[in-house]
């Protein structure tokens, strides 16, 4: 037996959530599928594989004011940004929820990033289990899975006429009133079968492959745009800049990418990652070697967005496979 919510009750509930907090859900914008703030529940898309951009925008916006500094009555005052309203994200996929959990490692490790913590604390995740998958999906090889309940507050799985509801956390309990749930004799549909990527032992292989010409050859094709970083749920690098005028200073951070030329340029002009190969290697080493080494988990969650969006088919699944098979000449 499972807890069940009918499609009709789900819409009513989402309508209620929309009234009392920000409701964010997948919407269609031209040909794209994007997480947007919902003004009417009719805009929500229920039938989708995954969104074009990841939901990280709602925890770590592409641009965000960190604080203002103002002069008032001869005093200098620092006014930090405050996230006031609660948010619920509906329709987040298990892979993306895992991605947000991965971002907790760098952002919430002390000293924690206060603004990220506010976003995280004030946001509840209503996950949708995957019934189908994109050809590029490989979450089950990266420590998650299409029905993984691990990182959401509520997980809904679509069945006939409604959804199986798993209420998983206190945040989830507070969000979904008991009276909307019934008990029903329905079982979860099978999870979609995804392509397997040989991620076992990849960290060590990445370490061994550090000096291989493989990266320069791969970089021949790479155009070094920032698409992969910006569509990725777990890429979290940013740049910080002050916007100043007579009355106040605003400190802003915006997404940045290790693929940008000059990302690692330092005072005096030296750039330790001046070659395209070294920049490309950095992105994959961060996901598959440094992140696991620092936090004990792979930094890629297998959502497949970078594979779909890359203009020149730099495919992390193929890279993992190729690195596993590299014959490393000698150990330094």
């Amino acid at each position: 037996m499972s807890e069940f919510i009918s499609k009709k009750d789900l819409l009513t509930w989402l309508g209620q959530l929309m009234e009392e907090r920000n409701l964010v859900a997948p919407t269609r914008v031209d040909d794209l599928l994007l997480f947007s703030k919902i003004d009417q529940v009719e805009d929500i898309v229920f039938d989708f594989d995954n969104t074009t951009l990841s939901p990280k925008e709602w925890f770590y916006p592409s641009s965000e004011t960190l604080f203002y500094v103002e002069q008032k009555d001869g005093q200098t005052e620092l006014i930090p940004a405050v996230i006031e309203k609660e948010t619920a994200i509906f329709g987040i996929r298990p892979c993306d929820a895992q991605g947000m959990a991965m971002n907790d490692f760098p952002f919430l490790e002390e000293p924690a990033d206060d603004l990220y913590r506010q976003h995280r604390d004030k946001t509840a995740l209503i996950g949708l289990a995957c019934i189908t998958a994109c050809p590029e999906c490989f979450c089950s090889s990266m420590g998650s899975g299409p029905h993984d309940p691990a990182n959401v507050d509520i997980l809904l799985t679509e069945v006939a006429d409604g959804y199986i509801a798993q209420v998983l956390t206190d945040k989830g309990k507070a969000l979904l009133p008991d009276n909307l749930l019934t008990t029903a004799d329905v079982s979860s549909p099978p999870a979609p079968v995804l392509s397997e990527v040989p991620s076992d032992g990849i960290a060590e292989k990445m370490r061994q492959a550090f000096d291989e010409p493989f990266w320069d050859r791969l970089a021949d094709r790479c155009i070094h745009c920032n698409i992969c970083s910006y569509v990725c749920p777990t890429c979290y690098c940013f740049d910080v800049r002050d916007y100043t005028d007579k009355e106040r200073i605003e400190r802003v951070r915006s997404w940045e990418s290790c693929q940008s030329p000059g990302f690692t340029r330092i005072a005096g002009g030296h750039d330790p990652r001046s070659t395209k190969g070294s920049r490309l290697r950095q992105r994959f080493s961060h996901k598959l070697l440094y992140f696991p080494r620092q936090f004990g988990a792979l930094g890629c969650i297998g959502c497949g967005r970078c594979v779909r969006a890359c203009p020149v088919n730099i495919d992390i699944r193929e890279i993992i496979q190729d690195v596993q098979q590299l014959e490393v000449k000698s150990e330094a």
Partner: peptide, 22 residues
């Protein structure tokens, strides 16, 4: 626009050593 600069990176006409945006 997410300012990924893919349009610039792929464009044969965009080859300034330092783009005005940087």
């Amino acid at each position: 626009c997410i300012r990924c600069y893919a349009c610039r990176q792929v464009c044969p006409g965009c080859y300034c050593p330092e783009c005005f945006v940087e």
